[in-house]
Simulated scan of single mutants.
Amino acid sequence: MALFDQMRKRDWAFVAVCVAGALFFGVWSVRLGINFHRAQGTDQSATDLSSSHRRARPLPAADAPAALNADDIEAQPGRPQ
Rank of each mutant, 00 (worst) to 15 (best):
A16H: 02
Q44A: 15
V17P: 00
I73E: 15
Q40A: 09
Q44L: 12
R38Q: 15
S51K: 02
S51Y: 06
N35K: 10
L49C: 06
R79T: 08
L59V: 00
R55M: 14
K9A: 07
Q44V: 14
A22T: 08
D5G: 13
A22S: 12
L59N: 03
P58W: 03
C18W: 05
A70R: 11
G78T: 05
P65T: 00
A22E: 04
A22N: 05
T42W: 09
Q76R: 12
A67L: 13
G21E: 03
T42I: 10
G21N: 06
A46Q: 11
P60N: 09
R57E: 09
A70N: 13
A66N: 00
A67C: 10
A39M: 11
H37T: 12
A67H: 07
V15Y: 06
R10K: 05
M7E: 15
W12L: 08
R54M: 15
V27L: 00
S45D: 11
F4P: 02
G26H: 04
G26P: 03
S51D: 13
D48R: 04
A16Y: 00
D5P: 03
R55T: 13
A70M: 10
V27A: 00
M7Q: 15
K9G: 03
A16Q: 01
G41Q: 08
L3M: 10
A61Q: 11
P65E: 01
R79D: 04
V17L: 15
